[in-house]
């Protein structure tokens, strides 16, 4: 399989994994290991003074995983930029998954605020991976600004609905000159395989792994699906046809 390159950095794995919703830090660590992922996302929140638990970071092997802080919770460009700067100050990492989601019901990304934040962050030297709706024009505008990837959604975050945006994703894949990471809504390994088969460069999965009855086994399933989908894509799948195409010879039948 080809390697994935984002902002000049090369990765063997095309599966990015989120760290939310795991039942314990140990389950998270085991599941992350099972995915073979090299990039994992984390979020920034206020410390709960009355219940100051160890932070998530201490359970993530930072020699093995590149941390990708997200700006979840941001409802405007200004809030996303603030979170990005905090994340960089905390980790020394320039990479940020930019997400601006003002609507808590569907958590759909705000394209205008995302574009504004991306412009500021790129100027400040961030490696920006923006979470967007599957909008080919927005994807191109962001890439033109200098974002490292685009991360169009398959369906709303955590919804497990799969690739509801497939037709638009195919256009983004066709036109994009930066890696396309399909993010959000990928509920089953088959959804991930489908995204990779249509030529996505990578996928990001969190909820479907973290909330499975057996997150570690599900992590393996997603790893295999990502690899299978990519291999199929690189192998040149044939187009669907309306009628049958016999796979056995149509000559030399007995009794002819």
């Amino acid at each position: 399989m080809d390697k994935l390159t984002i902002a000049g950095k090369t990765f063997d794995s095309r599966l990015l994994v989120g760290t939310g919703k795991f039942t314990s830090p140990q389950v998270m660590a085991d599941a992350l290991a099972a995915t073979d992922a090299e990039i994992v996302t984390v979020a920034l929140r206020r410390v709960d003074i009355d219940d100051a638990n160890d932070d998530t970071l201490s359970h993530i092997d930072r020699d093995r995983f590149l941390l990708l802080p997200n700006t979840s919770g941001a409802r405007s460009a200004e809030e996303a930029v603030r979170l990005s700067r905090l994340a960089r100050a905390a980790t020394g990492i320039d990479w940020v998954k930019l997400e601006v989601t003002p609507d808590p019901y569907y958590l759909l990304p705000d394209p205008i605020e995302t574009l504004k934040a991306a412009e500021t962050l790129v100027k400040e030297g961030f490696i920006v991976l923006p979470y967007i709706n599957a909008d080919p024009i927005l994807a191109r505008r962001l890439a033109d600004l200098g974002t490292a990837t685009v991360m169009p959604l398959g369906s709303p975050i955590g919804s497990n609905q799969g690739l509801k945006t497939r037709a638009a994703l195919e256009i983004i894949v066709e036109q994009s000159n930066v890696p396309v990471v399909v993010d959000a809504g990928l509920g089953l390994p088959s959804h991930v395989a489908e995204a990779m088969e249509i030529g996505a460069d990578a996928v990001l999965v969190n909820t479907a792994i973290a909330t499975a009855a057996d997150p570690v086994e599900m992590a393996r399933a997603f790893k295999l699906a990502t690899e299978a989908g990519r291999m199929a894509y690189e192998s040149g799948p044939r187009a669907a046809t309306r009628s049958a195409e016999a796979s056995s010879p149509l000559t030399g039948f007995l009794g002819d």
């Binding site: 939310g20 795991f22 929140r45």
Partner: peptide, 10 residues
């Protein structure tokens, strides 16, 4: 003063 930490997130 804002005290901020990392938590799990996607």
């Amino acid at each position: 003063i804002e005290l901020v930490r990392f938590v799990g997130g996607g």
